[in-house]
Amino acid sequence: MSKIEHAVRDIHFITASASRDQWVNLIHPLVKFALTAGYILAVVSFPKYDLAGLAGMAVYPAAVFILADLSFLDAVRRIYPIFLFPCLLGICNPFFDKNTILIFGMTVSAGILSMMTLIIKGVFTVLASYLLIATTPIDKLCYALRMLHIPKEMVTQIMLTYRYLTVLLEEGNSMIQAYALRAPKQKGIHVKAWGSLAGQLLLRSVDRAEAVYESMLLRGYNGAYLYLKEKIAFRRWDVVYGLFWAGVILLFRKYPVVLIAGNLAGGMLG
């Protein structure tokens, strides 16, 4: 199976996950969106050496993975390429930050500590975003964005891009397969063909976009955002869920809960 086919399958898997009737999936999309945004802000706001405090923030993704009945390993397999980005950024830290810090009586390189903090921040934020899209269908997510007064043109773009991402990936895949079948001795695509393949894909994308737009016009589309006209009401559970996690995130952001719990446990054992 080619990389593009894998990507298409991954998108289909995430869409199917979001459409399930799991308890977390049914939480109001605005609550989940706000929690995810708040969580990401809280994670990135940790000081660069506060690894112990940051570790506590694992509680939110860990709990949502369990509540949504999603596989952590599956998620890592699907999104690990994104993890490389914070890793690449963080890898420079040990070279630039030569200070040392004393932790539990051990001298640790501040550069390595800040590198690990950066990587973990990256992992947590990516996981939180993954959990949001794996538990919320795109139309509900767009509904939440509209509730936040994000311009309808932008929301429509997001909606249609998501819908047509797989169609375009499949289009690209069939072009690559057609190329490979007529160039069996070549490994990959020859650099000379890159330009024409990319050009063809662009032209096909434009054609597709035109056809879709025509189809929308013929069904009365006038630029207004009209998806999910039925209002999604807030239920008591949505509020409880939102307040609970907002409290937990604030608590873990303000106090090094993991460190305190560790000290307490250590004290009790001692």
């Binding site: 139309d139 597709r208 189809s215």
Partner: peptide, 28 residues
């Protein structure tokens, strides 16, 4: 006038069957 496209992927742009069928009446 209703127009059915040759390529259904050009015609169907919403995520679920229900939303796609409801698209026109909602727009009207």
């Amino acid at each position: 006038v209703g127009y059915v496209f040759q390529d259904s992927d050009s015609q169907l742009f919403m995520n679920t069957v229900y939303d796609d069928i409801a698209f026109a009446p909602r727009n009207y």
